[in-house]
Each structure stands twice: as C-alpha cells, then as structure tokens.
Amino acid sequence: MKLTLKIWRQASPEAKGNMVTYPLDGVDGDMSFLEMMDILNEELVNKGEEPVEFDHDCREGICGSCNMMINGQPHGPQKLTTTCQLHMRKFNDGDTITIEPWRAAAFPVIKDLIVDRSSFDRIQQAGAYVSVNTSGNTQDANSIPIEKAKADEAFHSATCIGCGACVAACKNASAMLFTSAKVSQYALLPQGEIEATDRVQNMVRQMDMEGFGNCTNTGACMIECPKGIKLENITRMNSEYLKANI
C-alpha cells in the first residue's frame, strides 16, 4: 500500500506548527495504524530526520494515550476503536491521510501529536474516588448488594479510558462526556453516596477552571468515543449537579 501522510509537526509548545507531507510505501493492511507510524519513524530516523512524536502505551485499546485526529475524526474512521486498534486495511492504496493532534485550549500541544492531558487528571483528582479505610478491617465490597442493572451501568461508565476523543470531537471542546462518566461511575453505586455532593461540584468546578467549553447537546462525543460512553451520563451529571446545589 502506498500512502501520502499529511502530519502536524510542532517542535515545542511555543513553536508555530505546520502540516508536513510524507510519502510512505510498503504499508501492509495487517499493520495497525501505530505500526504504520513506527515504519514512517524508522524511515525518518534512518534518513537522519526527527521522527514524528506520538503518545502510545498499551496498544490494546485500554490506556487511552494513542490520540490522533485522523482525517478529521478522533481515532480515525472505525467506530468504537482506538487508533492503536485501527488497521491499515481500513484505508486504500493511494490514500492521503491527514493526522493531527487533539485541538483544545485545555490540551496544549507538547510536541507534534502529543498533547498535555493533565487537565483530565486534575478533574479526576477533584473527586473521582471513594474514600475507603484500608486499616485491615475493610468491608468486603461484595457484601453490599447492588442491583444488576445499576452495576452494569456503573461498569459501563467506568470503561471510559480518558483519552479525550470527546473533547477533540466537540465543537465547544467540552469535557462533559468524560467528567460525567467519572461522576456516574460513583453516582450509581452506594459506595459513592457519601461524597456525592462534593464530588460533582468539585469536578465540574475543575472542568470549568481548566478551560473546557460547555455542552450544547450535539452528541459528537458519543459518536466518536472509542468506548461508546453514552450521553445519558451527561444527563445524570446534570441531575447530580442540580441535586447537590439545592
């Protein structure tokens, strides 16, 4: 497969970036998108050029770091799939592929395709936890009965990998889908009740402070989310927020 890649290159957070075109030959349909990037980088290094920097870790769709805007879509054209699990067979010989980093004020570019997503960490730290005493007398979590439907919902919300595709897809660069998934995961369980009021207030405050935009119910976040996190989470967070403020 012969491809033309148009990739965002930016040397540092302060530098002015630009799109650079790279022809790439010998791409196999069985390669993952990141393996294709590895091939490009090895070529660049062998030519004495600087490789394209991109984040990656597990390459099995659970760490949430392989974030790329591929032809204008977060994580590329395949539904419910992170960039690392996207295969080149989804593209055709002769294609031109545009690759950019996430674009959001709250995700500043570090270098090339790598953005700083620590704003997500700070939203997590603001309340996405339950306090548990680990003194050795910890109550077994399974001893608290939870109805199956709720447990399943909470589990589904917890599958959010925090990649930021929701922000990248949103015209307002809103982090509502991410934040609401983290709020919902606890709001649905009895273990989360104790800190429910503080949690939603602190997390929403942090989200606003980080400079994420607001939600206008477009729903692009849900369409692009590689884990299929549902818009209902945003509804739940809004009702939790209302409850906490009355």
Binding site: G48, P51, K111, I114
Partner: peptide, 13 residues
C-alpha cells in the same frame, strides 16, 4: 547508535 533531535526538548528517541 543514532539518536536524532536534541536533548533539550522532549525526545522520544
């Protein structure tokens, strides 16, 4: 070994 780029910026290589 060949390490491109600079040691003063982020450098994954």
């Amino acid at each position: 070994v060949r390490v491109p780029g600079s040691a003063d910026t982020k450098n994954q290589e």
